[in-house]
C-alpha cells in the first residue's frame, strides 16, 4: 500500500480525508487494542490532518498517542460509571 500524502488528502473532500486517514490508522490501532480500535481511531481523527500524517510516518509517536487515547478513554469510562446512577 502506498503511503498517504498531503496531496492525496488535499484532492479529497474533508470528510473523506478523515476516512482515508482512518483507514490507515485503524489496522495499526487494531493490532494493539483490538476491542477499542474503532473508538481510538475516532478519537485520533479529531487531531489535525497534518499531525495525523506525521503520526502515520512515526510508529513510535503513534504508539504513544494511542496509549494516551486509551488512558483518556479509560479515565472517562471510570467517571461515567461513577456518575451513571440516575
Amino acid at each position: 500500500q502506498e503511503p498517504l500524502t498531503a496531496s492525496m488528502l488535499a484532492a479529497a473532500p474533508p470528510q473523506e480525508q478523515k476516512q482515508m486517514i482512518g483507514e490507515r490508522l485503524y489496522p495499526l490501532i487494531h493490532a494493539m487494542h483490538t476491542s477499542l480500535a474503532g473508538k481510538i481511531t475516532g478519537m485520533l481523527l479529531e487531531i489535525d490532518n497534518s499531525e495525523l500524517l506525521l503520526l502515520l510516518e512515526s510508529p513510535e509517536s503513534l504508539r504513544s498517542k494511542i496509549e494516551e487515547a486509551v488512558a483518556v478513554l479509560q479515565a472517562h469510562q471510570a467517571t461515567e460509571s461513577t456518575h451513571k446512577s440516575g
Binding site: 483507514e23 485503524y26 489496522p27 474503532g38 473508538k39 481511531t41 478519537m43 487531531i47 472517562h76
Partner: peptide
C-alpha cells in the same frame, strides 16, 4: 498535563479492513 483527545469522539468504522473472526 491535560490531553487534547476527546473520549466522546465518534467511533470510526473502517470500510476496507476485514476483521478476523
Amino acid at each position: 498535563r491535560k490531553s487534547t483527545l476527546n473520549p466522546n469522539a465518534k467511533e470510526f468504522n473502517p470500510r476496507s479492513f476485514a476483521q478476523p473472526k
